[in-house]
Design a protein around this nucleic acid. Sequence first.
DNA 1: CGGGCCTGTGAACATCCTGTTACCTCGGGC
DNA 2: GCCCGAGGTAACAGGATGTTCACAGGCCCG
Lengths: 300, 300
Amino acid sequence: MTASVRAGAEGGSSGTSEAAAPSSASLRIAVLDRDSGFIQVLSKRLDRLGWEHRVLASPVPPEAVVSMRLSALVVDLAVLGPQAWSWLERLCEALPDLGIVVCTGPSTVAQRVRGLRLGADDWITKPCHPEEVIARVQSVVRRRRRTTSRTDTKPVTAGEVEIRPDRFQAYVTGHSIDLTRREFELIELLASAEGRVLEREEIYSRLWGYTMVRGDRSVDVFVRKLRQKLEKASPQWRYIHTHFGIGYRFAAESLEVVDPRDVPSSLPAGWGADGAKDGRGDEGELAGPQQDEQFATGSL
Amino acid sequence: MTASVRAGAEGGSSGTSEAAAPSSASLRIAVLDRDSGFIQVLSKRLDRLGWEHRVLASPVPPEAVVSMRLSALVVDLAVLGPQAWSWLERLCEALPDLGIVVCTGPSTVAQRVRGLRLGADDWITKPCHPEEVIARVQSVVRRRRRTTSRTDTKPVTAGEVEIRPDRFQAYVTGHSIDLTRREFELIELLASAEGRVLEREEIYSRLWGYTMVRGDRSVDVFVRKLRQKLEKASPQWRYIHTHFGIGYRFAAESLEVVDPRDVPSSLPAGWGADGAKDGRGDEGELAGPQQDEQFATGSL
DNA sequence: CGGGCCTGTGAACATCCTGTTACCTCGGGC
DNA sequence: GCCCGAGGTAACAGGATGTTCACAGGCCCG
């Protein structure tokens, strides 16, 4: 009974459901099946969701699955023939964290129970709606994600600075810059969009969660604090660039190799305190045509 | 409205401690349903398995479920009437770690998808075999435990302290620190994520099993108790580091960088401005024995 | 070349967060 | 029932962080 109901209708109407499952991004799954129709429809949906996926038409040894680094696997046990149970067992043993969704033809209660006991996370009976398959895969993956969420985010490096989401902190040559939460969120946001200019409003709404009221200078102030700490820890680099009338852009650019006569000690009076901001005025690349260009940082 | 049967041992179902037990033992689940036949058969099976279980015949507010400290809940959405979706949603929000198995009459794909998206872990259509219900509950619970345990088998050592999951205790130079259950769970959780900052909310939800309400200071208080005991037993080391506005990070860091004859009663010399700010800012330096190991970031 | 708008800066001020302590409740063991 | 330890809550103080202001310097446009 492939229900003739449109899943999109209701699923979409409940706005919260979408919010609850933003995990839909960057999932990697594999489908082991031979039912071309099923595969085709499912693949299309997976494409639309932007999940990385792969179709396997013939049994692969559990060891091979290991190297695929999957989040979940959808499998029709029929493809595996009589080896199905032992295959499933070995797979579950090898990859206890892999989400396994069995999606296969008619079966007995005993079979389903056996599969689930061996380690399958869910069992769907064909024929079934691809939307339900996807929802169940999401459900299976959800829990694992919840507890792994922070680990998966990998560190980003730009210039001398390394941003580690797992520590809510940025480092320069292995030494913490001592960023506060907001400062970290800001640098993380900017860095994750490296090369792209982010408008103030966007920065604000993504950090503060609500729309910025006119005249609010919070973003500027935090940019300043961030620049200050970055400059102190990594004086030879510039990371945050102002785009007049627009916002900010993150990009590591080396300063060294400028003119040797530019000695910090000879800075115009009044700038001495923490100096070093000399290199700044000329960054007026502005939102000009060449903005995406990576500066040929005169680094020889 | 409720029939209660006790089978297993007490003990909050939260935290890692439970995970140490075999999955078939000491599970605590509730069944929210009115189908007496179904309930009766299921109860019998649950009894036989020795699972602590409880039958609810009428809707209970999600808040009430929180206090039941369940591992999983089997629910017929029909009992909830039109409130079903919002009830489910609130429940999932309050208890992100609760296993929720919907077991209800005929439904559309859209309904199933919606339920799963809202946070249900599985959806079974009645009529169904109780054995399958049980297998699916087990599967759901298994997945949850898999993520919350993992470090149970092997002892962890950091600095002078050794954490032995098999004894629910931590030792310094072979001598027990005398941690209580929660204290142990806390240190185990923190240590198992060494190097990574854990947010308060995450700590709370993994130790207490439900979502932390704003203003709850339990985590802080337990951190303090833990620090106190650690400090008393291992004065020359710092283990738990505060990340302001975020949470805590576990890492063994030795204080005796300089002269060992410096008595701890006075401020530890060589510690920057003062000992007060020890909680932060001191990320990189003072490498503990094994602390700065990088995680395998390459995944995906 | 001048004005108007935008951004950088520093500091004051208001809030929020955490450390710490004291106190209360609950459940067991005697 | 009583005592005691563990867990949970409330309250306070000090410090860290976030926000707001005012002013100075810079950029763009006419």
